[in-house]
Design a protein around this nucleic acid. Structure first.
Length: 183
DNA sequence: TGCACGATGAAC
DNA sequence: TTCATCGTGCAC
């Protein structure tokens, strides 16, 4: 499987977000390889983006976002669910892409439509926060067979507090894919 | 040291 | 529409 290289992530975040669609998220734990095809994402542009956690500045929680690209930023939301992000752009930028839904490809049990469900189905939790996505047990890869699809863009979900940033169309998903959380 | 509040999901 | 449930960030 062809792992996405570091430079893939070191580019403008909305572009990385769109190009992550259709790619395979691979997580191997306890000898089991789980694979999900990324079908829905959201871009969080950096410290200036009021919807991004990094807009609070460099803190214990956000230091991963401000780190180098190609690392996983995983956090607990509402004390119940985990959310998985991919750090993008250069160090100190504070940008990341939230993975919102995957389509089951291999060894996936349960629902995968939604950031919390995706993490549960792929056994992703805070232990993977700061994990290098160029490692052998957790990475994103080029799919075995490339396919064509149209991309839909919409405002991000659940960020109404972010004033004008809430209106920006930074959520992207594969058109007509049944695993998208909120078409 | 205390407390308000989520980049959600499920039940009512 | 309500609620579960807890780590984080910031006010005292």
């Amino acid at each position: 499987m062809q792992k996405l290289p570091r430079p893939f992530y070191d580019r403008e975040t909305a572009l990385v977000a769109r190009e992550l669609l259709g790619k395979w998220l691979v997580h191997q734990s306890a000898q089991i390889e789980r694979i999900g095809k990324i079908v829905e994402v959201e871009a969080y542009l950096g410290a200036h983006d009021l919807a991004a956690h990094s807009s609070k500045g460099l803190t214990e929680r956000t230091k991963i976002m401000f780190g180098p690209p190609g690392f996983a930023y995983v956090y607990l939301i509402y004390g119940v669910h985990h959310c998985m992000n991919v750090v993008t752009e250069g160090e100190h930028h504070g940008a990341a892409v939230l993975l919102r839904a995957v389509e089951p490809v291999k060894n996936i049990a349960g629902k995968t439509s939604g950031p919390g469900l995706l993490c549960r189905a792929m056994e992703i939790d805070r232990r993977l926060n700061g994990h290098d996505l160029l490692s052998d047990d957790f990475f994103i890869a080029e799919p075995a067979v490339a396919e064509k699809f149209s991309i839909v863009k919409r405002p991000r979900i659940g960020v109404d507090y972010a004033k004008h940033w809430a209106k920006r169309q930074l959520r992207f998903y594969i058109k007509d894919n049944p695993f998208v959380s909120r078409p």
